[in-house]
Simulated assay, not measured.
Amino acid sequence: MPEAVGVIETLGFPSILATADAVVKAARVTIVYFDKAEKGDFIIAFRGPVSEVKRAMEEGIREGANVFGGVIQSHYIVPNPPPNVVDVLPIHYTEASEPYRFTF
C-alpha cells in the first residue's frame, strides 16, 4: 500500500499542538517529525496511507486554524515519496515513532 507524507507548518505552539492532536485522532497516521521552523513557526510531518494522510491533513488544517490566533503557514502532501527522498529528509520512521506506527 503506497504511503504518503503530510507536512503542516503553523505560527505558534498552540496551533501546532491542536494540529498534531487532530491529525492523529482523525486518521491512522504516525507523526515522524516535529521541529521549530523560523520566527515562531512549528512544523510536523506525518506518514500513513495516502487516503489517511489526506483525511488527517484536512482535520489538522481545520483545527490548527481554529485555535485563537492560529495561522496555518503552509501545508502539503507528497504521495508515495521515493526512497531517496525518505533517506535524505527527516521523514522516516525512527525508533521513537516506531511504537506508534500503524501496520497495514
Rank of each mutant, 00 (worst) to 15 (best):
L89F: 14
G64N: 11
I61M: 09
V78W: 12
K36W: 09
G12T: 02
E59D: 10
R55T: 05
N80F: 04
I61Q: 07
M57N: 03
R101H: 11
A26E: 03
A37L: 11
S15M: 03
T103M: 12
V53K: 04
T103F: 13
G60P: 00
S97V: 11
S97M: 12
M57K: 04
V85F: 15
V50I: 13
T10D: 04
K39G: 13
G60D: 03
F46E: 01
H92W: 02
M1P: 08
V32T: 15
L17P: 00
I91W: 07
V23M: 08
K25E: 06
V5M: 08
D87R: 15
A37I: 08
S97C: 11
V23H: 08
D35H: 09
M1S: 06
F46M: 01
K36H: 14
E59Y: 09
P83S: 10
A96V: 14
V71T: 15
P2K: 07
P90W: 15
F68C: 10
V32P: 08
E58L: 08
F102L: 09
L11A: 09
F13H: 07
P49K: 10
G48S: 09
N84A: 05
M57W: 06
V85L: 14
F34P: 00
K54Q: 06
P79I: 13
